[in-house]
Design a protein around this nucleic acid. Structure first.
Length: 551
DNA sequence: ATTAGGG
DNA sequence: CCCTAAT
């Protein structure tokens, strides 16, 4: 599985870049010699973005210390970085441990964070768009020079220049801001001024899509989308602006002919639905967030993958140090607001991780051995579910996470639209909506220490006073609500057999049994004790109401 | 706002 | 975990 994925990735990357190259070359060739001034401009523009090489450069940078030496191409390296991360993220679920629910747990923290992740996406998208944006800047100026709707022109320029510097310095705010300003420009594109706006739009789209699909093995280059093609008279969005600059419609045809091959192929390759892509990106986001939230070892499993992945692309080209992913980390850190310093994580030697994992696997213990251990457990999660627990540090970091409310936002119908014909704006919106709506249940694994605390709390307060228990025993864990506590207790009762429910339901019983198995028997002893002491459903098995004890 | 109970 | 009803 792992193997295959990696290979896919590799092949995919290769193909992608090849495609890009082809496009540019063809465009170049087809540029009519007429209008030499413009042609030169075009040449310049074409030469400017060394897209074909930036990947390599980016990787190199990655391998190095993310030092300032790379600053010139930082934008690119970041962009690439984003791609890599997504790749890894996407890769992970497949390559990690086996089946069952464990991955759900690993992923869980992420879904809630999607909003924040959005920023990351934005940043990444932008960095991807960066190179093209350079072009756009020049274009924009040209445009305004040509007296196209001055307001728009200046607008464009503003957003461009504003973003230029931050983009280069590769810091989150800048990047995000930029991407936002750029997107803000898009909606205006419907006005008559026509092509230059479209130009920007398409370019942005194209680059972001490139980055985007680079994450997904099954997904291939998807530069032009149907709507674009229609809008622009069937022109490749890459070729379009340049050609337009040169000589308008005649050029269009030339280019159209030239790019037919690549375009068609790209179209054909575009199989996965947007839905699919989105899903994937969310998963990725989750992974990214998880890396931030669990300062220590969440990635016990992931990390090695990252390494290997990088190796795949960098091998021989550079000597990569243990810090090879530091740039990645830094980027994330810079990008998100409430970020935990991932430094431990970086510096954590492999040996330590291995040690921890072994410790975990042998399992059942009540006492906390080390602060880091819990994270390992959560990350590994192949260990019995209830066995793992969340350490204070992780709790703290999760605590800072805003409590997710229930979305309940009405789902726009456009959301369900078929994918192929929708404007860029729609697509952007869609993505946004998806994020807010599509967030699934974020399940948090109950760790043994948590269960213990819960039991203690119940012993103290009895059932029914969940808020008190929450406040007292779980004051540090924001993600456990009183209701959660109650639910967990309910489950414990059922699992411990203290609840003489209709035991006929073998199916359910069986499922609960594994939960039981993963928890120390001592826990269940207590559960049973408490069950009799504080019967949860206030009705005893006999059906009589039992009054709750008041402490 | 909190709890109970069902999905 | 989510939702609703009841308190």
């Amino acid at each position: 599985m792992t193997r295959m994925n990696e290979m896919d990735q590799e092949a995919h990357f290769a193909k992608k870049f090849t495609n890009m190259k082809c496009q540019r070359v063809k465009v170049d060739d087809s540029s009519p010699p007429a209008l030499e001034d413009e042609a030169i401009e075009v040449q310049h523009l074409l030469a400017e973005p060394k897209t074909d090489h930036f990947s390599v450069d980016g990787v190199l940078c990655l391998g190095k210390e993310n030092s300032s030496k790379c600053s010139e191409i930082d934008g690119f390296s970041y962009g690439f970085d984003g791609g890599m991360k997504r790749n890894i993220g996407g890769l992970h679920p497949n390559i990690t441990q086996g089946p069952d629910d464990l991955d759900l747990g690993v992923l869980d923290g992420f879904l809630d964070e999607v909003d924040e992740v959005d920023d990351i996406h934005a940043a990444n998208d932008f960095s991807g768009a960066y190179e093209d944006f350079i072009l756009d800047i020049e274009l924009a100026e040209k445009v305004s020079y040509l007296d196209y709707a001055p307001r728009e022109g200046s607008r464009l320029r503003n957003s461009s220049s504003e973003s230029q510097s931050p983009g280069c310095s590769g810091i989150s705010n800048g990047a995000v801001g930029m991407s936002e300003s750029s997107t803000a420009t898009l909606p205006e594109s419907e006005s008559k001024n026509g092509w230059h706006q479209k130009t920007v739009k398409c370019k942005l789209r194209r680059s972001s899509v490139d980055k985007w699909d680079s994450q997904e093995p099954a997904e291939d280059s998807v530069c032009p989308t149907s709507d674009d093609l229609e809008d622009l008279g069937g022109l490749d969005d890459d070729a379009m602006p340049l050609i337009s600059l040169v000589s308008g419609k005649n050029a269009k045809k030339v280019v159209q002919a030239a790019k037919v091959g690549t375009s068609l192929r790209q179209k054909r390759l575009r199989k996965p639905t947007k839905r699919y892509i989105e899903e994937f990106s969310e998963l990725k986001s989750k992974h990214e967030m998880e890396r931030q939230n669990n300062l220590s070892a969440t990635s016990k499993d992931k990390r090695p993958k990252i390494r290997s992945h990088n190796e795949l692309h960098c091998e021989g080209a550079l000597t990569h140090t243990p810090k090879e992913d530091s740039s990645t980390e830094n980027f994330i850190q810079a990008t998100s607001k409430g970020t935990v310093d991932p430094s431990h994580l970086r510096s954590k030697p492999v040996s330590a991780r291995q040690t921890n994992s072994s410790v975990i696997s042998n399992g059942r213990r009540w006492s906390i051995k080390s602060q880091n251990e819990p994270h390992q457990m959560r990350a590994v999660k192949s260990a019995p579910k209830e066995l793992s627990f969340t350490g204070p540090s992780a709790q703290a970091s999760f605590e800072s996470r805003p409590r997710r409310g229930r979305p309940k936002k009405p789902l726009p119908l456009s959301f369900l639209e078929s994918e192929d014909d929708e404007s860029e704006d729609d697509r952007v919106k869609k993505r946004r909506y998806k994020k807010s709506n599509d967030r699934r249940k974020h399940q948090r694994m109950w760790t043994t220490p948590e269960v213990m605390k819960l039991i203690d709390g119940i012993a103290q307060y009895g059932t029914g006073r969940w808020t008190d228990i929450k406040k007292l025993m779980f004051s540090s864990t924001a993600y456990r609500t009183p209701i959660d506590l109650r639910d967990k207790w309910r489950n414990l009762l059922r699992a411990s057999g203290a609840q003489k429910r209709k035991s006929n339901k073998k199916e359910v019983e069986e499922k609960l049994k594994d939960v039981v198995r993963s928890l120390p028997s001592s826990v269940f002893r207590r559960v049973r004790e408490l069950a009799s002491l504080h019967p949860y459903p206030r009705f005893s098995p006999g059906g009589r109401y039992i009054r709750r004890k008041k402490n």
